[in-house]
């Protein structure tokens, strides 16, 4: 890419906004133990303390736990799950899609039918079922999200490999006698990667939402405070204490927005046709 990273970030206002928001979240997540006023599980005050009370900027929950501390620590869970699940989904999707696209024919057929099986099952229901079967834990949440998120990546990877395998530089590599795996990895993959990266970056946002939904239903890791879990706790008392659900909800919104802005910015930067289209 001809742009420097700084040039990319500054390339549009939404990219800039997304990058700033996300960077802020990452800093908060990394510094959570230092900047958080309390342990998110610690019952430090009276239950049902409203926001802006003494010692509770965002109020306390039904057990007297600090909402602000919960949100700060929750950022670690959300970002980690979002990233880890997406990396896992990317790995599965690239292998399946790449192999299918590169070899085409029967291999392609078999792998794509397998992919379709996953695509026809409602992803949220499948994710919940997987978590329930594996017992709720951080690993099972990540696994479940990865398992339901890889098919679109696989399809895109396959399309990219299919489109590129007959291009001239690939043919040239074939006539030079280079082995297939080498061509796939060193010629096709680097060129196929940009659109896949864009899709994956948007996938992080989806993964965060999925994690929140799973935790909201009480199927998250019981030892980790996440935003979805906090909303789940606050749901039952939303008539009495709106702040228990609203603030973690806003946190989810900000995180998803930041990643989407950044993802779209990436997309604009990577695909010149769309960039040109947007300007026209």
């Amino acid at each position: 890419m001809k742009h420097s990273p700084f040039g990319f970030v500054a390339s549009s206002s939404k990219t800039l906004a997304g990058t700033c928001l996300l960077a802020g979240l990452v800093v908060i997540a990394l510094a959570a133990p230092v900047i958080s006023p309390n342990d998110p599980w610690d019952m430090v005050g009276r239950p049902f303390t409203p926001p802006l009370s003494d010692g509770f900027l965002l109020g306390s929950d039904t057990l007297g736990r600090d909402i602000l501390s919960g949100i700060i620590h929750g950022s670690r869970v959300s970002l980690f799950v979002g990233l880890a699940a997406t990396v896992a989904a990317l790995a599965i999707g690239l292998v399946v899609g790449g192999v299918a696209g590169f070899f085409s024919g029967r291999v392609d057929n078999a792998l794509m039918r397998l992919t379709e099986i996953f695509q026809t099952i409602p992803s949220f229901v499948l994710a919940i079922m997987l978590v329930a079967v594996f017992q709720p834990s951080l690993a099972s949440t990540i696994t479940a999200i990865a398992v339901v998120s890889w098919p679109p990546i696989a399809r895109l990877a396959r399309a990219e490999f299919l489109a590129k395998r007959n291009l001239e530089y690939v043919s040239a590599a074939v006539s030079a006698g280079r082995p297939g795996w080498d061509i796939a990895l060193r010629e096709i993959l680097p060129n196929a990667l940009p659109p896949i990266i864009v899709m994956a970056s948007l996938g992080v946002a989806t993964a965060i939402l999925l994690e929140s939904a799973i935790s909201f239903l009480g199927l998250g890791d019981p030892n980790l405070a996440s935003w979805g879990y906090m909303i789940g706790v606050g749901r039952t008392v939303i008539r009495q204490a709106w702040w228990m659900s609203v603030f973690p909800g806003l946190a989810i919104m900000v995180a998803v927005l930041a990643i989407n802005l950044l993802g779209e910015g990436l997309n604009d930067a990577i695909s010149p046709s769309q960039r040109g289209g947007a300007k026209a």
């Binding site: 599980w41 017992q135 030892n223």
Partner: peptide, 25 residues
């Protein structure tokens, strides 16, 4: 949920006396 909250309280209260509880759901 009430039982879940009770479990979370126990985990927290016991950590104060040095017993580290892992919740299994």
């Amino acid at each position: 949920t009430t039982f879940v909250r009770t479990g979370e309280y126990i985990k927290q209260a016991l950590s104060k006396v040095g017993i580290e509880v892992t919740l299994e759901s």
